[in-house]
């Protein structure tokens, strides 16, 4: 090692040069805008694909999409969904979910239920602020889920689009599932996608 190098090394050691080097970086950051933001006042922009709280959706004509097939229940890895299906008294011979529960405390937000749903009745929304003092209110029932779905309808549709579950809004009509079992009269015209 040359004398110059040695001297430099000794000098560095004596003056805590590496500390100053690091301090330079630190001080440079004083000129940057802070990376953090003040959460309740400022909100993150949440991407469309975000897997937030689940909501149930309706078709544009207001009908419930869910037919109570219970596939979400079996797809759920944490067994947090419970569907009670029944015959719809208003529309005989139609199956629907008379009760629908998601225990959101158990939910792992994997999105499998949405993936499983054969009618795209479930969608995940960007809603994530539902902390509460009462744990019991975290058992989302059918009404609450439809409320969420209604309030976050756009988010839900965007989610479905982002995850390849549904084409974008204009085309979503094409994605509608038809119920052959609802046939009451044999004269009913066949749906568009089948003709």
């Amino acid at each position: 090692m040359s004398v110059a190098a040695l001297t430099k090394k000794i000098l560095h050691a004596a003056l805590f040069y590496e500390i100053w080097d690091a301090m330079k970086v630190t001080f440079r950051h004083m000129l940057h805008r802070p990376m953090t933001f003040q959460y309740p006042r400022e909100q993150r922009t949440i991407p469309d694909a975000h897997r937030g709280a689940l909501g149930l959706l309706r078709y544009d004509d207001g009908r419930e999409r869910c037919v109570g097939c219970d596939l979400c229940e079996v797809a759920c890895p944490s067994h947090c969904i419970k569907v009670i299906s029944a015959e719809d008294t208003a529309r005989p011979l139609q199956r629907y979910a008379s009760e629908f529960y998601i225990d959101i405390t158990k939910c792992v937000f994997c999105g499998y239920c949405v993936e499983a749903c054969p009618v795209n009745a479930l969608a995940m929304t960007k809603m994530y602020e539902y902390s509460t003092h009462d744990k019991r209110s975290l058992l989302f029932d059918k009404k609450r889920l439809y409320d969420i779905g209604e309030r976050h309808l756009d988010d839900g549709k965007k989610y479905l689009y982002a995850h390849n579950q549904e084409k974008n809004v204009e085309q979503s009509r094409e994605y509608r599932y038809y119920f052959p079992q609802s046939v009451q009269k044999s004269t009913q015209p066949s749906p568009k996608h089948l003709s």
Binding site: P92, L93, V183, S190
Partner: peptide, 21 residues
């Protein structure tokens, strides 16, 4: 060439429903 039948469900029996689709 999938096509569907549109047969009304036979619910006349008190016990069994026949969905011939």
């Amino acid at each position: 060439n999938a096509k569907q039948k549109f047969i009304p469900e036979d619910t006349r029996s008190p016990v069994l429903d026949f969905n011939m689709n």
